[in-house]
Amino acid sequence: MLFLAALFGFMAWTLYGALVVAPPAHVLGETARVIYFHVPVAWVAVLAFTMSLWNSVVVLRRHSYEADMKAEVSARMGLWFCVLATISGAFFAKSAWNMYWNWDPRQVSITVLLLVYMAYFGLRSATPDFDRRIRLAAVYAILAFAVMPFLVFVIPRVYMSLHPDTIINADGQGKLLDDKMRLVFWCAAAGYTFLYLKLYNLSVRVERIARRKEGWDV
C-alpha cells in the first residue's frame, strides 16, 4: 500500500514537475523536457537488462526454471523500455537536429541492444526443448552483455556524437541542470524505478500463473 502510494506520488509529481515546475532549458528550450521521460526510461531499460543478466547467470549455475522466467520477464520489459527510449530520443533528435536518425553513437548502441534482445527472443522461440532453451538463452544473454564494453569503446570512434550531455558539458563545467530541474529529474528517476518494480512484480505473477496453467510447477 505504502509502495503504491509512493509510486503514484512520484509519478504524479514527475508529470506535473516536468511540464510545469521545471523551467525550459538554456540552449534546448522546451524540447529539453523530454529528459524527464527519456533518461528515466533508458535507465529502467538498463536496470531490466541487468536483472535479466543476473538471472541468466543463476540459470547456468543452478538450472532454475524460476530464474529463467525472471530473466525472460526482465528482458521483455527491458526491450519495451528500450523501444520507448529509442522513440523518445528520435523525437528529440527531430526537434533538436531536424533528423529522427543521425547515427549518433547512442542511437547506434541502442539499435544494437534492441537487435540483441530481439535475437534473444528469436532464439527462445526457436528452441522447443525447454531444458535446452533456458540454457541457450542464458548463454546468449551473457555473451551479448560481454560484447557491450567493446561496443562502448568502438562506436564513438566510428560515429560522431551530438548527444546533449557531450555538448552541454563540453565546456567542462559539468552543470547540466539547475536545482529545480534536478529535483524534477531525480523524482522522475525514482518514479520510473518504482513503476518498473511494480510492473516487474506484476509480470512475474502473471507469467507464473500462465506457466502453472500450462502444467509447470513454478
Partner: peptide, 22 residues
Amino acid sequence: IVAQARARGMLFPVLAFPALMP
C-alpha cells in the same frame, strides 16, 4: 547454440551480428 534450435540458417546471422559488430 543454433544447432540445437530450429530455423538455424536464419537465426545464425541474427545472433551473430550484434556479437560480431565490434
